[in-house]
Simulated assay, not measured.
Amino acid sequence: MGSGGAETLVAGMVTAGSGYGWESAVASGGGHRADALRAAGVPVFPVPVARRSVHGVARAVVASSRAVCHFRPDVVLAHNVSASLVARLTTLWDRRPVVTVFHGVADADYPGAARILRRTSRTVVAVAAATAERLRAAGLDSPQPMVIPNAVFPRAAGTGRTAVRAALGIPPRVPVALCIARLEPQKRHDVLLDAWALLSGDAVLLLAGDGSLRAELTRRVATSGLADRVRFLGNRDDVPDLLAAADVTVLTSDWEGMPVAVLESLAAGRPVVASDVDGVPAAVGDGGIVVPRRDPAATAAALRTLLLDPDRHAAAVAAGLAAIRRQHDPHLLMRSYDEVLRAARRERRR
Rank of each mutant, 00 (worst) to 15 (best):
L333H: 10
L321G: 15
D237Y: 11
G225F: 09
L199A: 04
V61L: 02
D338H: 05
L307R: 08
D286E: 11
D278Y: 03
S265L: 01
R219Q: 14
V14G: 03
I324Q: 02
V147Q: 02
R342W: 07
V248M: 07
A343R: 15
V152N: 06
N235D: 14
H32L: 10
L192P: 08
V47S: 05
A63L: 04
P185E: 01
D228T: 08
R173C: 12
V340G: 02
S142F: 14
G4T: 09
W22E: 00
I116R: 13
E184T: 10
V291A: 00
G211Y: 00
A137I: 05
V273E: 11
P330R: 11
A244W: 09
A106D: 11
Y20T: 10
N235K: 14
G209R: 07
R51Q: 15
A208L: 06
M334R: 08
A60W: 03
A246L: 01
V54C: 13
G169T: 10
R326A: 10
P330K: 11
R119M: 13
R312V: 07
L341P: 07
A6D: 03
A181S: 07
S82L: 15
S84C: 00
H331Q: 15
D286P: 09
R229V: 04
N80A: 14
A322I: 09
D254V: 07
V47G: 03
L205A: 00
W22A: 05
I116V: 15
R229Q: 03
R134V: 11
E339V: 13
R88Y: 08
L140G: 02
A132S: 00
L198G: 03
V239R: 09
D228V: 08
A157S: 14
D338S: 05
R155G: 06
P185N: 04
A83E: 04
R312A: 15
A344Q: 08
V191S: 01
P154I: 04
V44Q: 10
R220T: 00
R33Q: 12
R345W: 11
T8A: 01
R122D: 14
M258I: 12
P149H: 07
R155I: 02
P145I: 01
